[in-house]
Design a binder for these strands. Structure first.
Lengths: 187, 187
DNA sequence: GCTTGCCTTGACGTTTACGTAAGAGGTATA
DNA sequence: TATACCTCTTACGTAAACGTCAAGGCAAGC
């Protein structure tokens, strides 16, 4: 069965709001030095605590500690965002780590900076290639759609799902907003 | 060290041409019913025989046999192309299998076709999302480039790689055409 | 004081997509 | 005839990215 990259465990049972109310009362939501618990980030980005600890293990994150407990800064949060996006575009964790390291390289070594620049440009070029692949794949699938639509128009026009209505539903679903009746139909 | 998805073993030591000369003499290269040995496809797409056998195991390919040996048709070749592109855009093999199966669904079951259509549209939407991710990642990296360029212009302008020359070299390298001196510098 | 719930650190298990070796057979070349 | 080089199957190994217990700590609430 086809599924969107829906993780086995969804950590969205409680909202970040709820958590903030119980745990984050001494923080101002608007202040940039706000900090987050592991769960808050898990809820917000729909990942598991195990994943965050794993990223830490691999040197992609290094949250502060409050006693034993991890405390994530806004900077950690930003890094996490980059990590997850990196994953979505196909980077491995070690690649992502390298990129993040390159961003951090504050020691200002000019040679290092030059190398970083080169690597960044390589990455960009690779991503452009990947974009072309995606465009190609989309085109393939759209051709498939056309074929199927033709086939259905000839045999059972009643089964033709209306594209517009469907699209809006799908978009809502991807945004994690609604669980519409059509979702159930998708089986 | 950052590397482009360069497989551990490159099966490009012999060209497809060479193979065709020794093995494919009774085939006309222009005729669409041309067939291929496993190695020919490996060379052409730079994958290992193991990978092709693996795809077969998983039901993504089903080449004919000449005795024990696999014989790939142009249709198999086309499927392989789709498989590899699917991989590059992040589909798992089982997802790719499903998509290929949907393409094949010749039994004409209208309900099946309707479902296929729906899944295709889901895939397309997911790919569009992914493209946005890629655009975002490219933007991030370009910002990083700008930062680094600024930093270098201030400290060591001599170390600034010229973007244009570099880009052409990189493109050639991605096309697997040239192994330029700059490649060695990349280390 | 006890349960509930979230946190921690191990440590072993799992899936995907092959790699890699082992052993055997077919064919072309020296 | 020997050698090299391709092919096959079987089977165990592996890297990445976590999942899944297990065992324990700390705090809140009843």
């Amino acid at each position: 069965m086809i599924e969107f990259s829906r993780p086995p465990q969804s950590y969205a049972s409680r909202t970040a709001e709820q958590r903030a109310n119980t745990e984050g009362r001494r923080f101002d939501l608007r202040r940039p030095e706000r900090s987050f618990t592991i769960r808050q980030l898990c809820v917000e980005f729909d990942v598991t605590p195990r994943a965050l600890r794993f990223y830490e293990d691999k040197g992609l994150l290094f949250p502060a500690r409050d006693g034993m407990n991890r405390v994530y800064s806004t900077r950690d949060r930003a890094r996490l965002q980059l990590i997850l996006r990196g994953k979505r575009v196909g980077f491995s964790l070690s690649e992502i780590r390298e990129i993040l390291d390159l961003y951090d390289e504050k020691d200002g070594g000019a040679v290092q900076a030059s190398r970083s620049l080169k690597k960044f440009r390589e990455r960009i070029e690779a991503l452009r290639q990947q974009r072309e692949d995606i465009d190609g794949a989309i085109q393939n699938l759209e051709e498939g759609c056309i074929r199927l639509e033709r086939q259905l128009t000839e045999s059972r026009p009643d089964l033709l799902p209306k594209a517009e209505a469907y699209d809006s539903v799908l978009r809502a679903r991807l945004d994690g907003q609604v669980d519409s009746p059509l979702t159930a139909l998708a089986e």
